[in-house]
Design a protein around this nucleic acid. Structure first.
Lengths: 130, 130
DNA sequence: TCAACTGTACTATTTGTGTTAGTACAGAAG
DNA sequence: CTTCTGTACTAACACAAATAGTACAGTTGA
């Protein structure tokens, strides 16, 4: 995995890194049980503080995306959220609404947006239908 | 328009208010040329600082969503972004990707998401097809 | 003209977040 | 036992977020 950090950006480093890891998992570029770089290794490569990397790993473990085995490293967890379906749906709707809001304000039509959604969807690793 | 602020939230007040105004415009609950509450009035109603409201209005004017007429008040601007189509598309794709990422990580299937998109779309005031 | 509204600009202060730095501790592997 | 792993903690600095207060300028209507 190759991550990259823009220190000039106004979005915090730990957010940038966390989003890149989430995205990599959702797209299948990081598979279940695969190991992530060590805190010290990654911090050296990105030229950021080890604490910042550790913070990201801790946050993602709290979200159930990563599992750390002490002394061994950090690994991608098995998929599956512990939230109720209602909670998961509400969380997703917030993002959907902000997406639609931006789409309208940017002047896109409903047709255009439908097309974007259709095309872009292929880049993600969806769970098989229940 | 009724706005509400959660001071206990970790998201900044000015972000909460800005998002609510953006959303109201995108959904058509705030129509073109309609007037927003004055800085002092709204700050009194929400029990926040006038500066915070002024900051939000300034930001949204910079984004082209609002227009202020000195001495008269702040109004909803005419729709239309000054960005190029490419820039607008890239901006929207960032939001679409984070939506898809969250959807996958929450365990939703492609079918479910397609349905969400279809249903929710009706709540927004889309520009007529070109 | 003047009072009362509008937004704008500025400084000062407080609080919290983001980041780095450094040290120390504990589990796992060879 | 050395060396890797993640964890925990404190200290320090810079910046963002928010409040408070004051002052200025444009618009309206009595």
């Amino acid at each position: 995995m190759d991550f990259n950090i823009d220190v000039a950006s106004r979005t915090p480093i730990y957010r940038q890194l966390a989003e890149q890891i989430r995205s990599a998992i959702a797209r299948g570029r990081l598979q279940e049980n695969s190991r992530l770089p060590s805190v010290r290794d990654l911090s050296r490569r990105l030229v950021i503080n080890p604490n910042t990397v550790a913070r990201v790993y801790t946050e993602l473990e709290r979200d159930g995306l990563l599992v750390t085995r002490h002394g061994l490293g950090v690994f991608v967890a098995s998929p599956g959220s512990d939230l109720t379906r209602k909670a998961r749906r509400e969380r997703l709707m917030l993002l959907l609404d902000s997406f639609f809001t931006e789409a309208v304000l940017l002047g896109f039509t409903a047709e255009e947006v439908r097309e974007f959604v259709q095309d872009r969807s292929a880049q993600f690793q969806w769970q098989a239908g229940v």
